[in-house]
Amino acid sequence: MLKRPEKEEYAPYYETYISKVPDGDYESFLQSQLEEITALYSKFDDKKGLHRYAPGKWSLKEVLGHITDTERVMSYRMLRIARGDTTKLPGFDQDVFIANTSFDEVSIEDLLHDFQAVRQSTFTLLKTIADSAWSRAGNASTYDITARALAYVIAGHAQHHISVVQERYV
């Protein structure tokens, strides 16, 4: 079972996400999120997917695309760090990512399939990380972080956006 990261394993910024991951079986939590996001987004048609809860906010489609993009980036960071690569990894600007996508032109069904594929890829990656590698630290976005902390960021970030969708879009 993947142990919760200590506060020294990540920048304070990430506490917002890591604190959203409950104690217990990490992979079961990821699986429950996959099911929750699938059920949540399966209720929306493509017209509803364009809904924004306020001017300048992301559409439901953009939120799902953002969750997926962020999981890709964090999984890549986790891979590099777990494998012992000490290269400093750059940050990414979520607003630039959204500005340069066409998520609103993609069907909810296709965006959901993309998220499901990325989450399945995360599951398979987790199986290839040795127990001793979880505590390896690297540098991403100018902050030191462990592979374990990145795993928790993936789950906590998705949980954050599940809550936003449930509170502001549904």
Rank of each mutant, 00 (worst) to 15 (best):
Y10E: 06
Y10C: 05
T16S: 00
S19D: 13
V21A: 07
D25R: 08
Y26E: 03
Y26P: 09
S28Q: 14
S28D: 11
Q31T: 11
Q31P: 00
Q31D: 11
E35S: 15
I37L: 14
Y41Q: 05
S42C: 12
K47R: 02
R52T: 14
P55M: 04
P55R: 03
G56P: 09
L60S: 00
L64G: 09
G65M: 04
H66L: 10
I67C: 07
D69Q: 07
T70S: 14
R72K: 14
R72I: 12
R72W: 08
V73G: 02
V73N: 07
M78V: 06
R80I: 05
L89I: 11
L89G: 04
G91V: 08
G91S: 12
Q94M: 01
S107P: 12
E109C: 01
D110R: 13
D110A: 14
H113A: 13
T122Q: 07
F123N: 13
L125T: 15
K127W: 03
A133L: 00
A133R: 01
W134P: 12
R136Y: 13
G138Q: 10
G138A: 10
A140N: 08
S141T: 10
T146A: 01
R148A: 14
A149W: 02
L150S: 03
A151D: 09
V153N: 08
V153Q: 08
A155F: 11
Q159W: 00
E167L: 09
